[in-house]
Design a binder for these strands. Sequence first.
DNA 1: TTGTAGGCGTTATCAC
DNA 2: GTGATAACGCCTACAA
Lengths: 339, 339
Amino acid sequence: MHKEITIYDLAKKLKLSPATISRALSDHRAINKKTKKKIVDTAEALGYRSNTFASSLRKKKSNTIGVIIPRLNSHFVASVLGAVEKIANDSGYNIIMSQSMESVAREIANTKTMFNSRVDGLLVSLAYDTGNIDHFDKFIKRGIPVIFFDRVFEDDKCVRIVIDNFKNAYDVTTHLAAQGCTRIMHITGNLKRNVYAERYNGYRKALRDAGLPFQKDLLLSGELNEASGAAAGEKILAMKKLPDGIFGANDTSTASCMHVLKQGGIRIPGQIAIAGFNNDPISRIVEPNLTTINYPAYQMGEIAATTLINHLAGVSSISNTNIIVLRSELIIRSSSLKK
Amino acid sequence: MHKEITIYDLAKKLKLSPATISRALSDHRAINKKTKKKIVDTAEALGYRSNTFASSLRKKKSNTIGVIIPRLNSHFVASVLGAVEKIANDSGYNIIMSQSMESVAREIANTKTMFNSRVDGLLVSLAYDTGNIDHFDKFIKRGIPVIFFDRVFEDDKCVRIVIDNFKNAYDVTTHLAAQGCTRIMHITGNLKRNVYAERYNGYRKALRDAGLPFQKDLLLSGELNEASGAAAGEKILAMKKLPDGIFGANDTSTASCMHVLKQGGIRIPGQIAIAGFNNDPISRIVEPNLTTINYPAYQMGEIAATTLINHLAGVSSISNTNIIVLRSELIIRSSSLKK
DNA sequence: TTGTAGGCGTTATCAC
DNA sequence: GTGATAACGCCTACAA
């Protein structure tokens, strides 16, 4: 087995004190340049590696950021996580990641792990059915910053980074109405989750403003994945009176739904105009191209990570009532253009 | 600021020794059941949390698995990572993740971070241009297991988990030839990378076996993303003599290419039969549906994680010459069916 | 500019 | 069953 080199070994070898070695290796300014170089060189030569455990134990800092996401199965989440990792990596932070698999129980468990791992900060997008954020209190109590993104909880305890889901949904629905749609269906997720609730509210408001009635049978709640999208398509095909517009709360399921409808002989957008949400690559590939909302996922990840890291570095402090709203807007493509 | 509770605090409170506390908390069998319960309860009550730094320092184990991936931007990578995280989490391991962004330099840097973080084991899919795996020697030398998946290096130092890229590519190409294609184009990535090299070789072999000549102008190397797929489409549209078949090395770029071709008035599969690779969701949504290879991404992640964890637990040992080949096969869909 | 010394919180090895 | 004690490797007052 390999013998690990420590600063004591270097100290003995160079006839210096461990303190000097430690300082040199962390580039302390009060160390003679020549000594420093000598130390760094022999450290390299002997294959020394700093022991982060000892260092973290002493400094009470892990240099690690925890990320909790619902599930790594969408283009959106992958983009956010990719951006977070990039920023964190560039700033010398490690990322430890875990999935709640859309379950609060698991989210709470993940929370405990992160807590025990003593992450310096936390980035979180909530599970489907998370109804309160008490399990983050232990972080807050100890001053460990927690930033929520996308799937947040309406509570001023923590920073939230979001888009204007209400407005986006309002815009989509209004656009469909302007195309002449009068029976606009909304396919969405769990309405307990803020993002879906807000999109639903935006949809309702737009209907009202367009003088259209809300009809219960035009609201479909599901898991918003490929399968549920297809199921929605089948359900629609079986309806006595078809909708003439569909606003889906994400692109994956909406594209899948559209696919089934086309297979069923429905003309898009002629018979049914369709719009999704997220601007996933798939929205640009399906035919007709999907009208959607341009959700700046990568940017959201960058901002979440940057905000957290700046706060940790003391560069800027995050107030507890901060909400950051990113710009997101309607992209009109042919799937919704009746005219 | 919060005062952290340590086992000393518990010891004092309960008039026991720190050693007993430690044993009780790690469920040591030689501790009286009643004492154990008392200890665990007060630990809970006082909000004690074990200090993993101290523990890791003492035990010389981090309970952490490092994962290095090229980039978190494909359905494939997200699936693998999702599976790895799930398995690791279920087994009590943490995941620390980093992206090489397809650059060896960054991969080497990530390697150093992981090394310093003292991961217990490493799961790696190589960057585009990684030409040797010397930067993993330091792990191997210290007996830290490294498992490569998908993008591997032909070297018996480490375990490799792969699919039979050669055979898959051979099958795809042969299928296209059987459909009557005689000018089969291959759109691929960096041929230095094993997966693309093998697919290329399979393609060449199939051409030979089908009595078809290999033509340089029917080989296109790119980044295999949405943009490069579209660019390939444009390039094809500008060709004097069109190919009558396309085998793309992934679904994302192939779907994008097909989209451009359709826009350009090409009938698929009539004029050009098309096949991709990976069985991404997009392959089931585009029209016509994409013939592809069913790459078991999630399963690959599960197996990689399980193999590593079992090895770490001493359950099973991984020999240094192990190659695990997962089953992957051709899925024929309408994009390639001329008849 | 460098050295001394104590402590960060655990766990493993002896003892009893 | 439980306790005493010595590492694990690093950092940082405080001294020199």
